[in-house]
């Protein structure tokens, strides 16, 4: 049974696209068939983070309007054959995506993949509503910071009101993914602790992704961090989160960078 996930947050810049790419790749590494879908019409970026920006021919809206077949728009990842990307349109208006067209695409994607991961645009406008519409489960990306937590709370309310599941009287399964977590600052009492965020939002925790240079390095290279540097702290945190999505019961901790003495001495890239 395919599962449709929406990666959402309300607030921009908290790590939705990074997390979509990292989790998508991690699930694919575990042998799952995965498609990541960019819903940010007009401001697409998932293609760039996935390193597929030069391979985009057709997009979500072309398929929704019947001008291209789904198989023509899907871009198969060059590193993992069971990972695909469905890009958003960069030139079209965000209203060009029709409800009907989208419903048909999601139905078709469900038959082709185990996981359909919808990367939501920021905000609570139409694009964000379309991204969550067909979701079975939501991953709410939150930074431990007041405006991000407030916006997450708002999004949680919308997931309970504006989704297809909500219309049927069912609930969208929710997971909280805390990103850009800085343990040193939390320890000094200058960053909301994980328990604070969990208490306030009361959504079960999927994982804690530590703040790390590796995330920027990976996006510079056009690689999901789970592929660029699988042993780095954020990659391990994302991989664990992916396994929890698959039902594994793993204890949640904040992975730390391993201090790689040999690597430093020899200047190699052992990690």
């Amino acid at each position: 049974m395919a599962k449709v996930l929406v990666v959402t947050s309300g607030k921009g810049g908290v790590g939705k696209t990074t997390s979509t790419a990292a989790l998508g790749a991690a699930l694919a590494l575990n042998g799952q068939k995965v498609v990541v879908v960019d819903f940010d019409v007009g401001l697409r970026n998932l293609d760039l983070v996935m390193g597929a920006e030069r391979r985009v021919v057709y997009d979500l809206i072309n398929v929704a309007q019947g001008n291209a077949k789904l198989s023509q728009a899907l871009i198969r990842d060059k590193r993992l054959e069971n990972l695909a990307l469905l890009p958003a349109s960069q030139t079209r208006d965000k209203d060009a995506l029709s409800e009907k067209g989208l419903a048909r695409i999601i139905r078709e994607l469900r038959t082709l993949f185990d996981w359909v991961i919808c990367d939501s645009p920021a905000g609570i406008e139409r694009g964000a509503m379309m991204a969550m519409r067909h979701a079975d489960a939501a991953i709410i990306i939150t930074n431990p910071e007041v405006s991000s937590v407030r916006d997450s709370d708002r999004i949680i309310g919308l997931l309970d009101a504006k989704t297809e599941k909500a219309a049927k009287g069912e609930r969208v399964e929710k997971h909280l993914l805390i990103t850009r977590y800085d343990q040193a600052r939390a320890g000094r009492g200058d960053m909301l602790k994980t328990d604070d965020v969990l208490d306030i939002l009361s959504v079960p925790l999927l994982g804690i992704i530590p703040e790390s240079d590796q995330v920027l390095r990976a996006s510079n290279l056009g690689q999901p961090v789970t592929l660029a540097n699988p042993l780095s702290a954020p990659a391990r945190a994302y991989s664990d989160a992916a396994r929890r999505l698959m039902g594994d019961n793993l204890a949640i901790n904040v992975p730390l960078e391993r201090f790689n003495l040999l690597g430093r001495i020899f200047g190699g890239r052992a990690a």
């Binding site: 937590v149 960053m191 602790k193 604070d196 208490d199 306030i200």
Partner: peptide, 18 residues
């Protein structure tokens, strides 16, 4: 520490907004 202030402000605000 500033985090406890953040926590309290959020709790008050969200109780109202919810």
């Amino acid at each position: 520490a500033t985090a406890p202030v953040a926590r309290e402000r959020l709790q008050v605000l969200l109780a109202h907004e919810r």
